[in-house]
Design a protein around this nucleic acid. Sequence first.
RNA 1: GGUCGCAUGGCUCAGCUGGUUAGAGCGUCGCAUUCACAUUGCGAAGGUCCCUGGUUCGAAUCCAGGUGCGACCACCA
Length: 874
Amino acid sequence: MDKVYEPQKYEDEIYKKWEESGFFNPDVCVEKGICKKDAKTFSIVLPPPNITDKLHLGHVVMVAITDILARFYRMKGRRVLWIPGTDHAALASQNVVEKKLLKEKNQTRHDLGRKKFLVEVWQFVNKTQATIIHQLKKTGASLDWSREAFTLDERRQEAVKGMFADMYNEGVIYRGYRIVNWCPRCHTTLSDDEVEHEEKDAKLYTFSYAKDFPFAISTTRPETKLGDTAIAVNPKDERYKKYVGKSYQVDFCGVPLTIKVITDNGVDIDFGTGALGVTPAHSMVDYEMAQKNGIEIKKIINEEGKLVGVGKFSGLSVTEAREAVLIDLDKRELLEKEEDIKNNLAVCSRCDTPIEPLPSKQWFVAVDKKLKRLGGKSLKDKAIEAAVSGKIKFVPERFTKRYLDWMKNLHDWCISRQIWFGHQIPVWYKGEDVFVGIEAPRGEGWEQDSDVLDTWFSSGMWTFSTLGYPDLKAGDLKSYHPTQLLETGYEIITLWVSRMVMMSLFALQEIPFKNVYLHGMVLDKNGKKMSKSKGNGIDPLEMIAKYGTDATRMSLIVGNTPGNDTRMSEEKIADFRNFANKLWNIARFVDSQKSVKSLKSVKPKTLSDKWVLARLNEIIKEVTENIEKFNFSLAGEQLRDFTWNELADWYLEISKIEKDKGEILNYILETILKLWHPFMPFVTETIWANMEHDMLMVSKWPTVIARSPQTTKQSSSLTAVSSFAIIQNIITSIRSLRADYKIDPAKKLGVAISAGKMVGLLMENVDVVKGLARLEDCSIERLAAKPVDSVGFVVDGVEVFVDLSGVVDLKKEKFRLQTEIAEVKKYADSLEKKLANKDFVSRAPASVVEAEKKKLVEARLKLEKLGEQLKSLK
RNA sequence: GGUCGCAUGGCUCAGCUGGUUAGAGCGUCGCAUUCACAUUGCGAAGGUCCCUGGUUCGAAUCCAGGUGCGACCACCA
């Protein structure tokens, strides 16, 4: 073994070894007897990275957390399935290719035509997909590559078509003419979640439609007012009461409008003039008002973002029209006011172009429709129920609320997109006839809908489209669905998590996953979002190349708690690189101690043995529990603390003196390698291989060693753990007294221990043990003034004794007091409750009530006393 | 506007259901060095646990209010 661990030398080889073993695939594990055929399953789908992405730190967090669980449960004998895949990211991918095309060949997708353009996209896809998969493998993810999926591969296409047809037949999918979010640049609809709001400076204009119109309105978008068909006022607004219900014919800058005055509670009396021009075709809110009041919908902006059907303004772009309208209004002296305000502008999340809401014929998923297969409930109802009932648990829990809030406000989901890359909608038209199905209908003249599906439609099916759906009898689907866990970022709850729940409920009447673990965002060391433009991003692959995968993963696990953002810096990664090296060197040392091969059990001989094995036991228990509870950071810290500060710093040092600890050292090393493996798979597997063992990845997870009968028989008040801890304390206290007494620093110092009757000599006349090595000063007399045969120090031939039983008694006493306090408190609380009960007080005889009151006062007094006693012990 | 989160040594954070002397890593300072490891070891300094009030024998922890950050959602045109 080299002096220093160089991850680059081993990682690729190790990953290859894992892959070739086939153990990432649970079927192989069953076949080879790694786990039982009927073992409990543990299944997870990898949130498929967009193929447009390069691997970023967020992905590594996701992989690291999931891989910990996958490896942990695999070692615990579960049938673990973790499915990899990638997402075609319809619109995002298309945009990237379009940009490239424009830059390289100065062409648009329309220049190429649909077919040729898609060839371009697929070329791009194949390349980037290979890249991201290669990168995923570099993270050490124990993914079952034999089941790799792509949201747009053949099997997923089949699944999506089947799902669409199924939903159409149930009436959940319908086609409707509705207001949608339209991106004039991408030339497609967007779902509500694909629209972002940016606060912008805007101007609020106040004007009247015409001279003869009785009052003015305020707007930031005068050009849309050409499409107004009503004015809404608050029903409580006295100023406008007399106009409500009336219709007016007006000439608005040369365009004739019919305006009806209606009321709506949503109108803010104090905003602007308190009168809102209603443009039903180009505002979601206005559309709803128009629906309620039976007002005409007049579309004046087309898909190109140009005005239509508005006389002289026709053909102008939105911004041009705004100018033109304002000039005209000014000319007519109708403009009353122009104010600066802050306004939330809706923009496309993909290209930042302002969104134009406009009416369009699109496909929708009805979220409120009651369905037979869901017991007369709607998708929305069931999706809410799943979280409320606790069937789906969020970690951290507070995100349940976010999920529910969003779900409750959910509108029908527009799923058609006017782009070319994606799942083409499986609907065919011929004249008035419509056919929905998986294959094109027979006969001539049918034409498929040219739109494609929102990318979240196919990724919403991810938990089951990867398991054999639409074949409901598929083995994988039966064994592994619902999945155990979804690990993802909290920013994606609405976009993805909610869709998965609804899709799964519809397709299988079953939730897609039992737990949702949400990690936070990875920020730079100043707490800023990492972004390409700022150049503050950390490239995980660079870090992996420089410090190793294990270190990179650990740095993202430790100090990272669910739902909270985490800061990242290169120094942190370097710290864990150092730790990996420490582990490596522990192994080298153990190796040098002529270790024996694998031992089932080990017998402690000295106090230090008992101590270290007892601590190891505790660590096994804590780490196991913490992984099960998703406390990865804590588990990692506990392990690191034990490995470095207890094992390496103390026990290894002691073993240099006490000697002959090869067996125990070997046993401890094997155990911690197993415990470390889910966190740092590469270095642990490498060390394991050096120890001439088979494969750590599929070894058995350690269990707590049963206490040997000898130890339990000892009724001594000192356990190995506490006595060792006390010794450490004593060493510290000796140091704290050194100012009072001087000892020749050249003289050697040793420690002998006889705690109770159970321990013999620990060390003698040595100067290398941690903490004792350079003890310059020591208070001999002060410690010797209390001669008790618990702990004895030998300092340069002089024996020193310390009263250990006293220390222990103090601890015991504290514990006893705390228990008593708890009991008394419980008693006092019950009395209080009784006395607060009106029934009791009125019915029971006065004497009894008095007696109870007295008891309560006494209990309170006692509590006070006990509390003081506890304090005095400190 | 609504909702949620955060505030602990110079920095980044732990601290579960209230009870050892409030912890860790990094950083700082001092010391060591042919020893498994300089990607090292030993040690030191450094904290009114944001403020105020309340509950309690006891509060970093629970409650209320305040202050300061941050995030998300939202149809104020």
